[in-house]
Simulated scan of single mutants.
Amino acid sequence: MTDFIYLASQSPRRRQLLQQLSVDCQLLLPDAAEDSEALEVVLSGESPTAYVQRVTQLKLDAAVARLKNRGLPPAPVLCSDTTVALGRCIYGKPADETDAARMLGELAGTTHRVLTAVAVQSGRKRLQALSVSRVTFTPMTPAQIRAYVASGEPMGKAGAYAVQGRAAMFIRHISGSYSGIMGLPLHETGGLLRAAGLKI
């Protein structure tokens, strides 16, 4: 029974969300030699659900190997991945400001899905869960999109927005898990961590 977990994520939001559960986590981040972005390439014809689950499993495989290679003390390892989907179209992190503006223009005035997969490895046991939420954006003018992109907030975010940030003023309705949209669904994550042996 451990009293901490390894979090294989660079997202400060996921760390904050785990703190809400009073879970002590140590970061288990990739080495400079690891090409973590390569794990996020979408396969031809891949559905958003299959994509987010596959990427999360690949991230967990890499993190477990990292733990072993570094000779760190054993503890559960948590990985998560979030993607935004409109129909079967997957919206990952924008490549640049132009890409962010394109994504926001396509999502504006629609209801899209936010899928977050979570996976935990504890010893030989691997547990996983999927959270699917729906977010409805109001229509956005080109000027509003430009101003939001200029804020810098969309960069590094799936779908080019942060639900907990300035984008909230364009969100008319949410159905599902707010924490899942942020990047770590706490209901599902709590269940996985309890199953992995944490007392939370």
Score class of each variant (00 low, 15 high):
Glu97Thr: 04
Ala38Val: 03
Leu127Gln: 07
His173Lys: 15
Tyr6Phe: 10
Lys125Ile: 12
Ile181His: 01
Pro139Lys: 12
Phe4Arg: 11
Ala162Asn: 04
Glu188Gly: 03
Ile90His: 09
Arg166Lys: 14
Glu97His: 10
Ala129Tyr: 03
Ser133Pro: 01
Val64Asn: 01
Ser131Gln: 02
Arg54Pro: 07
Met182Trp: 03
Leu115Pro: 03
Met103Thr: 12
Ala101Arg: 01
Ser175Gln: 15
Gly152Leu: 01
Arg124Met: 09
Ser175Ile: 10
Thr138Phe: 10
Gly176Asn: 03
Ala38Gly: 00
Gly123Arg: 09
Arg146Cys: 12
Thr49Leu: 13
Gln16Arg: 04
Gln19Asp: 14
Thr83Glu: 14
Phe170Cys: 04
Asp96Leu: 06
Val84Asp: 04
Ser131Asp: 11
Thr82Gln: 12
Tyr148Trp: 03
Ala195Asp: 08
Gln19Thr: 09
Ala160Pro: 05
Ile171Trp: 11
Pro154Val: 05
Arg172Trp: 09
Arg166Thr: 12
Gly105Met: 01
Thr56Ile: 11
Gly159Val: 07
Val52Ser: 00
Leu39Ala: 12
Pro48Val: 13
Gly180Tyr: 00
Thr138Lys: 14
Val149Lys: 03
Gly45Met: 02
Met155Asn: 02
Gln26Tyr: 14
Tyr161Leu: 09
Gly191Thr: 02
Cys89Leu: 15
Asp81Leu: 08
Val55Cys: 09
Val23Thr: 10
Gln144His: 03
Thr82Asn: 06
Pro154Asp: 02
Lys68Leu: 06
Thr111Cys: 04
Ser47Thr: 15
Ala167Trp: 04
Gln20Val: 08
Pro74Thr: 05
Asp61His: 13
Cys89Trp: 12
Val77Thr: 08
Arg88Ser: 14
Thr116Cys: 08
Met140Thr: 08
Phe4Tyr: 08
Gln10Trp: 05
Val42Ile: 15
Leu27Cys: 13
Tyr51Gly: 00
Arg15Ala: 15
Ser151Phe: 13
Phe170Pro: 02
Gly92Pro: 12
Gly159Pro: 10
Ala119Thr: 05
Met1Ile: 13
Ser36Glu: 15
Ala95Met: 11
Thr2Phe: 11
Ala129Ser: 09
Val41Ser: 13
Leu104Thr: 00
Leu127Phe: 10
Gly183Ser: 02
Glu37Cys: 07
Pro94Asp: 02
Gly165Thr: 01
Arg166Tyr: 11
Leu58Ser: 05
Tyr148Asp: 07
Arg54Asp: 07
Met155Trp: 00
Thr110Gly: 10
Arg54Gly: 02
Asn69Cys: 04
Gln144Asp: 12
Arg194Ala: 13
Gly176Leu: 01
Lys199Glu: 12
Leu72Ile: 04
Leu104Gln: 01
Ser80Leu: 07
Phe4Ile: 10
Arg66Asn: 13
Glu153Asp: 04
Val135Ala: 11
Gln20Ala: 11
Asn69Met: 05
Ala50Met: 07
Gln164Ser: 06
Arg134Ser: 11
Thr2Ala: 14
Glu106Gln: 14
Ala162Thr: 05
Asp96Trp: 10
Gln57Leu: 13
Ala168Pro: 06
